[in-house]
Design a protein around this nucleic acid. Structure first.
Length: 121
RNA sequence: UAUGUGAAUCGUCUUGUCGCUAUUUAUAGAGGAAAGUCCGAACACCACAGUACAGCACAAUGGCUAACGGCCAUCGGUCGAAAGAUUAGGAAAAGUGCAACAGAAAGAAUGUACAGGUUAUGCUGUAGUGAAAUCAUGUAAACUCUGUGCGGUGAAAUGCCAUGUAAACCAGCUUAUGAGAGUUGUACGCUCGAUGCUGGAGGGUAGGCAGCUAGAGCAUAUAGGUAACUAUAUGUCAAGAUAAAUGACAAGAGCUUUUUAUAAAGUACAGAAUUCGGCUUAUAGAUUCACUGAAAAG
């Protein structure tokens, strides 16, 4: 199974830029995850993952959910990355604490699909 | 033996595929609590830290430690049949406050009954309530007193680089006879000192590097000590991220529960953020050692 590496250069790190995405960007959501995105004019696309502190109090569960999202994105986003979009993406998880990887992956797939169709039309 | 008590340890593992972070490109990569941020330090800056008051903490005796409000030992109190557990354990003849219920009354009080005594009252004794009833007593996890200790801030410290017209503009006040600033609550003292303070209107940054992982380090052995702990020798280097790496999937094994040897379900608490020593709280399950001998059973 081929997949695309997801390293430090692709991640969106600056907190103020993430705030900008939340404020001015558009939003799509599936059953577990929502995606905020903004055409930023930055040469590379950049991605961040976020889990709310209010809904998930323990740091370890937040950590786990972020990793699950990351993995789901990494395994399913090959076509997505090859388009070389100049966008910033922020994925926000709002589901419950107890999920397995398959659920997250399904949700991520449907989210990416809906983004594609919206973007093409 | 079960049960009980105490101390200590572990807290899933292996293989494959795909990935993440660091850099030496080959290796390494989350805990016993990484948590709470409750104490004590290292380190940094402010007079390498001053004085007085205020404030805070602690409190049997002896020891350990870099230090402590921590730990160890012993004595006393309380609980337990025992092994053991637990203990904010100085002072009430300096003063103030408080003392449920009961009781006339818990101190600006002194009632009732009986007896004694007296001309009579005051007075004396006994009874009853209560933990305590008259030179009161108890209480300091009430104020207080005594003794001892304590300067502040906290890696968002601090230093350097970059960016920004940034010492821009307007009004008022003040000023080397000292404005004002400096990290102790107040007063003093000390240091710096005109690039000052207040208001208005307007604009911009909030990024990087160091600090940042060799340390009161870890393991083993020997010696001293009842112990906490200390000394010596040998070996060893073991995460360094910053919207924050340490992951996902598949297969197998282990453990627990249910069950019919198949099989099914479960496998805690929880995620480093400058670094150490403690305390407190959360925790499925497993292991080892020492000790006790009440009731009940053999």
């Amino acid at each position: 199974m081929a997949s695309y590496p997801l390293n430090k250069s692709l991640s969106l790190r600056n907190s103020s830029e993430i705030d900008v995405v939340f404020k001015n960007g558009k939003k799509i959501s599936s059953n577990l995850i929502s995606l905020h995105y903004l055409n930023s004019g930055h040469p590379k696309m950049r991605i961040a993952f976020s889990v709310g502190k209010k809904s998930h109090k323990l740091a370890s569960t937040r950590n786990k959910l972020k990793r699950l999202m990351k993995e789901a994105f990494r395994l399913n986003a090959i076509d997505f990355i090859e388009q070389h979009l100049c966008c910033d993406f922020v994925f926000v998880y709002f589901g419950s604490d107890k999920v397995n990887f398959n659920d997250v992956e399904q949700s991520m797939k449907s989210l990416l699909l809906s983004f594609q169709t919206k973007n093409l039309s």
